[in-house]
Structure formats: C-alpha cells, structure tokens
Design a binder for these strands. Structure first.
Lengths: 336, 336
DNA sequence: TTGTAAGCGTTATCAT
DNA sequence: ATGATAACGCTTACAA
C-alpha cells in the first residue's frame, strides 16, 4: 500500500506538500500538484482513512443501531425501509455506515455507548429500541450525537424523527366512525413502544368526540407479532361479540387478526372491518387488501440521516422531524 | 475521552503496562493489573479501535457490499435476509460491518476496491452484483479477501457461497413433468445473473431427460422485476397458447406472471401452473400460494460471513460453500 | 515484571 | 510555496 510518504519520496517533495496537494489546498504550486497527483495515481495510492480519523478525531462514520434486525422480523419490512432511507441519504455524503445490532451476543457485555465509543462513530441512529431498554437514557444523555427513530425524546445531543401517531390513529377513528361503526375495538401493541401509547390516545380521543367510548374491555394487547394479533382479536370478540370494527396498532397484528377471524368464519369486511397501521408490503397482498395508515418509513430513515449529519457537519441543533402519514383505504373495511 | 496514557499516569505505571494489562497479557503482575483495570473503569475508559487499527493494520471490520439495497427492491426480502445472516454470524465475532451500497452516487467515482481500501476493511462480502459489472474482476483478482454471494468464481483471495441453482431448476422440471405437463415454458431473468444461466440449464436438461424439449420460443426473458414477469408470461402464452405450466426464475416474476395471467382470465393452477424460485416472503401470501424453490437465504449470508472470517482469522483457503434448497409445493401448481 | 522508544499514516503548526 | 516536526492513541520489539 502506497502512502503519502512514498509519493513524497518519488515526487521529490515533503509529505506535507503531498498532503496539501491531495487535499486541494490552495497554497501549492500547480506544477507540483500535478506531479504529485500523477505519482499518486502511478502508485495506485488511496488515502488511509484510519490514519486520518485518528488525527482528525472524526471517523466519518455513523452507527446504525437496529434492534429487530433479526430473522423473524424480516416480515415486517419496516426496519429495512428505514435502513434504506438512512443509507440513501448517507451515501450522498462523506459518511459511511457501521451496522450495530442489539440482538447480538455482544449486547450483554457492552452498552450501545461503549460500542459507539470504541468504533468512534461520529453519531448514531437508533431504530427499534424499546422504551424500557436499560440503555436508552444512557444514549439520550450521552455525548454522542444521536437521532432516535420513533422515540420522541430530545436531549442535549439527541433529536428524533417520527410520524404523528396520535393524528394517524385519530384519522382511523374518524374513518371508522364515518363508516357508521359504533361498536369498535382496538388491538394495541405492547406498552414499551411509544407508538402504542400515542395510537391508543389518538384513537380514543377521536372516538369520544364522536360519542363513541372505547372502554378498557374493548382494548386488547398484542406484542406487534402476527400471532399475537390473532389472539388479541379473538379475545376482543369473545368479550364484545357485537364488535363490527377493529383497529390494530400494526399491520402485522392486523394480518394475524384477519387470518384468525377468517378461520372462525367471520367475513372481512362484511362481518367485521379491520384497519392496520404501517402499510407494510404485505398489507396490499393479503386478501382482502388491508386498510391502513401508511407511514413514510423510507422518509423516516432518510430524515434521520439528514438530521444527524446536519448536527455533525453544521452543528445543527438536535430537533425533531415529523414525516407524513396517510390513510390507505383498501378492502378490509366497509360500511357497517 | 480517557486514553491509556491517562490510566498510566493515574495508576503510576507506563502505558506499555497498561496496554498489556488491558489486553490480558500474562506477563503482568496481578496486583498491577487489578489496579489498572480499576482505574480504567474509574476513568470510564474505552479503547480507541482506530488507533489500534492503525498500528495493527487490521480494522476488524468487514465490508458488506450490496447492490439492490434500494427502495424499489424492498419487496424482495432476499437482500435483507442475506444481510441478516451476515450480521448474525459477524456479531459472534470481533468484526463489525460497514455497509457499502453500489447504487450510491459515490459508485461512479470510486471502484469497490477503492472504497474498501480507503475504509481499510479486512474483507468484503459482495451481494447482488451483476456479472457484467465492470469492477467484478477487479474485486476477484484483487488483494482484499472477499466472498461473493451467488457468483461462482474463485480467486486467489475470493471464495463464494451459493445454492445449487442447476439442481433446483432440475427439480422443478422433474416436478412439472411428474404432474403430467408436457407443454412447458420458462420466464428467465436477465443474462447478467449467473443464476439465470444455471436455472435455465438445469430446467432444460431435466425436461430433455423426460423427452420434453424447451425450445427457444418457449423461453421468455424478464429482468427479475414483478412487472417484467407479467409481460414475459403473456408473451409466452401468445407464442405458445397450449402452454400449461410456466417456471419463473424468480418469485417476484412469478407473482407478476400470476397477476397478469389472472387478469386475462386464466385460472391458476387449473388452466396453468406457475412455479417460482426464491421462496420470498410474499410467495406464501399471494393467492394462490406460490410453489417455489426455497433457498436458505439467511444461510447464504451466514455462511458467507463464516467463510470470510475464516479466511481472515485462520488464513482459510478461499473456497465455495453451497447451501441447501428445497421445493416448496403450494397451490399455484397442479396436475395437468 | 516493567519501562523506553519507535512506528502506524495522516493532518496541523510553525518556520523558512 | 514548501518543509520539519509534533501529535493522534495505540502496540510491540527491545532493554532493564
């Protein structure tokens, strides 16, 4: 591997000059620069970013900390879409992405902060972490610039991107009430996701405003998995046989609910309407197509990267970015 | 950020001793070690991997070079599953993963090799690259240890993992012939994927052995996208209206074919049987469920990482690893 | 068992 | 416009 030292020797100049020439400084003679660039090419030189990072104290890498990047979760293309967005923005910049996953065996030994400190990432994007994660606060309070996906917390060096989950759920309420439903239930996700809380609140509030009460026995909790959605939906119907519409806090749970209900002989949407949340890929392939709230998942990742890199490069303040959502009406919901 | 220098000062020893103590060398007094470890903890020390990499000339990172990691491709969870496999194996080791994507704007300026050399990755896993990629040879002939996914080429520092595409396609041929089909067509992918060539050969050979000839006008090429599959399938039926079974070289194309055929009034599998390849997530959600060849995509990634890291850590020879495949019979195929 | 010193490949400061 | 030289934080002969 050729180094600037080799170039310096061959070109008959000092390493300082080589460094300056290659980095486009103005105070170097055009002829010397030309010669240096030439010999650099000749020696097939490529800069050693590690050495550069060491002296500059900047690695030009951002950590992408994902939980849920596990085999079982591939169904839910949420994670991958976020990652794609992050990647697309980052690849327009000088930053490379280092992947950290929390389901790894390393996790137990090392906190996220340690991971990031050791690899010297300049900043980190965190996706899929649970609100009860013991290290969440450590990250938010920490020194490393970070952007959280779907966790509305701002710290001295921490911003976030999210969608307006309250508003999204509100729209579902409006929509179902508009279709004439009055006996409505909800399958929520586990309590350790901020989105669960928000979606519940938004849904409840919009129904109340239509004089529909979502009592506790009309709310059943799953854990965002397909299977749990089925279980929760059946429970719901057992407790409230009159239910004509169910809002599920995730598409995966909604799909589970549809499967379970269909297997019990319910027709969707004739007997019961189902609405999901996320607009995952599957939702438009299942039968019937699932009505859901579409989130700009890709945008979530893209904006996260944008926000983080703005914080890094222009000392931008940590702040929040809200990306849009939209009701996608398909065939799993109908007038009562 | 505390460094070993700080620890050395505080503990009253030399930095050499600190280095040795922290790295578990035997030639250091137990008491000194204890004190050093203690002060390290006290100072909230974490090692600077960048400095370490510089001197060791090993970054303990592997590059994951993916093309197809783009928004449009999220449907096909192939890429993400490979990535998950890579990640799962890597996270059991000391290696971290750096993500490179070829669809980035960076690509035009820099070759893969440059990317890898600059970031000083110890090795690289390459997924989704086309056989006509101008830089493919550069990688295979290059100095950087690498493992290719689904490109059967071995070099001095390059191994690969793949499935037996010939055998998989062969089994599809046997299967369809076994169902009594004699008028059979194939929708292949573009010629710039090794898998296309292999699948075509395997399919053709197995049919010939059953005295069924797959003439050129019974082969229609798509480009692995859903839409192209639909187009190719319609073309095929126009040219050969008697066709009763179509083998598509990817599930996505098969799904496109099913949609297109259904919209023309064909019933699947009553009028025409469809078989795909890949067993992507969608294939068991579409109607009817798609018969396909399941590849252990996760295993592809896992084995790729394993092979690469073996090459890096134990100077393992570059070699090939073949992961298993299996025919998944669902409802898109039936007796003629 | 411990310390001194060189060196990894850069950038940056200060002369010249 | 160019060059010496120190520094980044670490590992590793070599010496003591």
């Amino acid at each position: 591997m050729a180094t600037i030292k080799d170039i310096a020797k061959k070109a008959g100049v000092s390493i300082t000059t080589v460094s300056r020439a290659l980095n486009g400084y103005s105070d170097v003679n055009e002829d010397t620069r030309k010669k240096i660039v030439e010999t650099a090419k000749l020696l097939n030189y490529s800069p050693n970013t590690i050495a550069r990072s060491l002296v500059m104290k900047k690695s030009k890498t951002i950590g992408l900390l994902v939980s849920g990047f596990i085999r079982e979760n591939a169904k839910d293309n949420f994670t991958i879409e976020v990652m794609t967005g992050v990647n697309d923005y980052a690849s327009q910049t000088a930053y490379d992405i280092v992947l950290f996953t929390t389901n790894s065996s390393k996790q137990r030994e090392k906190t996220y902060t340690q991971l990031c400190k050791e690899r010297k990432v300049d900043g980190v994007i965190i996706q899929g972490i649970r609100t009860d994660d013991p290290y969440l606060d450590e990250v938010i309070e920490g020194e490393i610039p970070c952007v959280l996906v779907d966790i509305p917390k701002i710290g001295k060096h921490a911003g976030y991107v999210s969608t307006d989950n309250y508003a999204g759920a509100w729209e579902v309420g409006e929509y179902l009430a508009g279709l004439g439903h009055t006996s409505i239930g909800m399958v929520n996700g586990h309590e350790f996701a901020f989105v669960s809380q928000e979606r519940l609140k938004g849904f409840k509030d919009s129904l109340i405003q239509k004089d529909i009460k979502l009592s506790d026995d009309r709310i059943s909790n799953g854990d965002f998995t397909e299977e749990s959605g089925g279980r929760a939906a059946l429970q719901l119907l057992e407790d409230n046989p009159s239910t004509t519409a169910i809002f599920c806090a995730s598409d995966l749970m909604a799909i589970g609910a549809m499967t379970a209900l269909k297997s019990r002989g319910y027709r969707i949407p004739e007997d019961i309407s189902i609405v999901g949340y996320d607009n995952i890929l599957l939702s438009r392939y299942v039968q019937p197509g699932l009505t859901t709230i579409s989130q700009d998942t890709y945008g979530l990742g893209y904006e996260a990267a944008k926000l983080l890199i703005d914080m890094l490069d222009h000392e931008g303040e940590p702040r929040k970015t809200i990306v849009l959502h939209e009701l996608m009406e398909r065939d799993s919901s109908a007038k009562v």
